[in-house]
Write a protein that binds this DNA or RNA. Structure first.
Lengths: 341, 341
DNA sequence: GTGAAAGCGCTAACAA
DNA sequence: TTGTTAGCGCTTTCAC
């Protein structure tokens, strides 16, 4: 907890190197158009003085901050219940770091925070924003969109009407769900159920759509609502067994849900996969590999999603430099076969 | 992805309100020493123009950034395996937000990143840093300490020699462990084992110390090394059962470890708590409540730890304003009784 | 109580 | 290629 020492300025470096501030500035920012010997002298002076540019002064004139906000709607239990958030963040961080950008994390807790976030984003502290819009009715994303900050969303925003060109990164939830259900059908299962996620999230809705793509004509009783949690999975599985005792396969909206379902199946004496085959979604390793039996599931590359979000945003920020305007990106999923189906 | 609109400046507000820039500045920063009618006029002008101060310009002169870096050593599987990180972050975020500070997240991935973080912290972009130093041999914390940025650590740093006054926030790991083991002993158990955490982390070492405080004279075979993961817990439990078949209680270094141990105990046909009582650490709800049987455990208030870290740092930053220099804080733990012990 | 003026440290025309 | 100069938008003495 030392006090801040007075830091050397461009001026000081210039004096020491015997050149002008402008030259030092050039060298510090890449050094093109400065002759080698001078570059060398400046470099040495920088070194000796331990000069570090003052970001505030630089931003003041460049209007660039080399900083990106990551906005996460917080009350989401889900954000904490699974490593989703952390993994995505890691991907984002890596990409940002690779391009010398800083990550400003904005966690929101409610109404008040929305205003705060809006103000912050509108306040020109950051060059852009990466936003996770988990719920259909979340007012935040639109608010941000209106703030006029370049933004990339994580997951397809629910309010996206297809008209406005929102940029987002998402997994192919629908396609992945289709693949899972097809696999179940291919196993010869005929009573394939689906435990949904929280349906106010597009990922859950899309997975349900995927299920219906394949099982459109199936007994509607086979679809039961969950909420992405193990507890929700248990509840749903019980309901399912009561309603349709002949169910022989379950596609759960995520691995956590599947783990809950598995527990109930065991409790009720159903063997997995012999009596009931189970497939999850996510391939969350600590969950999928620990269940009994290990979970067959649909993998999505979460870290890559984060990386991609950052990449799209940075590209957009650079579009003046000839880059094209990015559009939404949907990443493929993979079926991972383990023992449960 | 709109282009940035030209934002109004202090100058513009001053013109509109018919006052000087200085007066507007005063109003914007609290408004003391300005007469009410003027305050009112300025406020209105700010409102009408949608004025938001330019942080860069302000920082340039005040040398304050109202921003704090949170540094997390990343490769830590643990950071992603449990909600620890997210919870702590939430606490930090809340406190920071309450004091109008921004959270800049620095995730590090290795050697190269250390230099980068050092540079960033030394570069005066933030007013202080909150650092998680998980491993004893992590070079980062010391590097940061040397950067001269006010810093608060999360968890007692391993290299803290007691001489230098590092400020940190930690749970009473040792005391909590003692309480857990005493509870086991109080239950009449005589062969109380301990599955440790990753011993290169102070939290694990401290919990082991707590165990020894109570069981100092016990069979050393009863202590077996884990790594804070369920898999580690399984491995350790197997070893334990082989080595000491008469074990009648287990204190696991955390809930994840305990869940692994529980699994093995079930597999080997030992009843919990009848044959073997089990206690965890953390009270990580999604884990502790979902185990079978539900886990008795030592709770630590993780979010509060985060909040406290931020509070200590902010207080230090304000110490010029009469605050005292903060010291380390150790939070108490609570034993939560469920069914496993 | 209010305003005028001097920078904070840097970049970016423009001259040389 | 290098230097000179004029701000970027704000806070903060210092006069009034």
């Amino acid at each position: 907890m030392t006090d801040t020492a007075p830091r050397p300025t461009l001026e000081a470096v210039a004096a020491r190197a015997g050149v002008s501030r402008a030259t030092v500035s050039r060298v510090v920012n890449g050094g093109d158009g400065v002759r080698e010997p001078l570059v060398e002298r400046v470099r040495r002076a920088v070194e000796e003085l331990g000069y570090v540019p003052n970001q505030a002064a630089r931003s003041l004139v460049t209007r660039r901050h080399d900083a990106v906000a990551v906005v996460v709607a917080e009350p989401e239990t889900r954000v904490f219940a699974d490593p989703f958030f952390a993994l995505q963040l890691r991907g984002i961080s890596k990409e940002l770091t690779a391009h010398d950008n800083q990550l400003v994390l904005l966690l929101t807790e409610g109404r008040d925070d929305h205003a705060r976030v809006g103000r912050y984003l509108g306040g020109g502290h950051v060059d852009g924003a990466l936003v996770f819009s988990l719920h259909l009715d979340d007012p935040l994303p639109e608010l941000i969109q209106r703030a006029g900050v370049p933004t990339v969303f994580g997951g397809r925003p629910g309010w996206s009407d297809g008209t406005t060109d929102v940029v987002y990164v998402d997994s192919d939830n629908r396609g992945g769900a289709r693949e899972a259900v097809r696999h179940l059908v291919g196993l010869g299962r005929t009573r394939v159920a689906h435990i949904t996620g929280a349906l106010d999230q597009t990922s859950a809705a899309d997975r349900l759509d995927g299920y219906r793509d394949v099982m459109g004509d199936a007994d509607p009783e086979l679809v039961v609502r969950g909420d992405f949690t193990p507890a929700g999975g248990e509840r749903a599985m019980r309901e399912l067994l009561d309603r349709c005792p002949d169910v022989d396969a379950v596609f759960a909206a995520n691995d956590l849900t599947a783990s809950g379902a598995l527990r109930v199946l065991r409790e009720r004496g159903r063997r997995v996969p012999e009596d009931v085959a189970v497939i999850g979604f996510d391939d969350m390793l600590p969950v999928a590999e620990q269940t009994d039996p290990p979970l067959t599931t649909v993998r999505q590359d979460i870290e890559e999603m984060g990386r991609l979000m950052a990449r799209l945003l940075l590209r957009d920020l650079d579009r003046r430099n000839g880059g094209a305007t990015p559009a939404a990106v949907v990443l493929p999923t993979t079926l991972i076969r383990r023992a449960s189906a």
